[in-house]
Amino acid sequence: MRLQKATAFALYAVLELAAEPERQMTAVEIADKYGISAHHLAKVLRDLGRVGLVAAVRGVGGGYRFAGNAKRLTLMDVVRLFEDTGADTELSPAEARQDIAQGLRFVLREIDDQTAATLRSISLATMLKLVGRKPWAAQGRAAPPGWRRSAA
């Protein structure tokens, strides 16, 4: 699965902050840790702040802290802020008349349904527990398969 950069940055930030809810981190600190653009992350953090998932802390030592409920918030709750999760493959009128095009859309919808169910089922708390267990290491891989950000 490919995620927009903003989505991946939001997940990094929210999970990083939710891992230690009392801790404050600046956009630069998070960006440095993940090797991503601090400028882009700052914009994402402002978006997350607007919906109440993080709170800006002013003053010396300020930054952002987690402001949500890690047991209630799911990965989908974060992803849908930045991705059009309800989008279906658009077919032109000519494509819509072709069974092959309809069949391909049917299969792609199956993949999307599975993805959405997975994202809805994993709370931030569950995700942090999974990170602690590192199940991908037991599979002999350095990182979960298929995890990459879109270049767009």
């Binding site: 799911t74 349904d113 169910a117 809805r120 089922s121 994993i122 709370s123 569950t126 267990r133 199940p135």
Partner: peptide, 16 residues
């Protein structure tokens, strides 16, 4: 697939 409550429960138990 659409039973999010039970899906989330099993995920919370470490199932993948």
């Amino acid at each position: 697939r659409d039973d999010t409550v039970i899906h989330a429960f099993f995920r919370s138990q470490g199932m993948v």
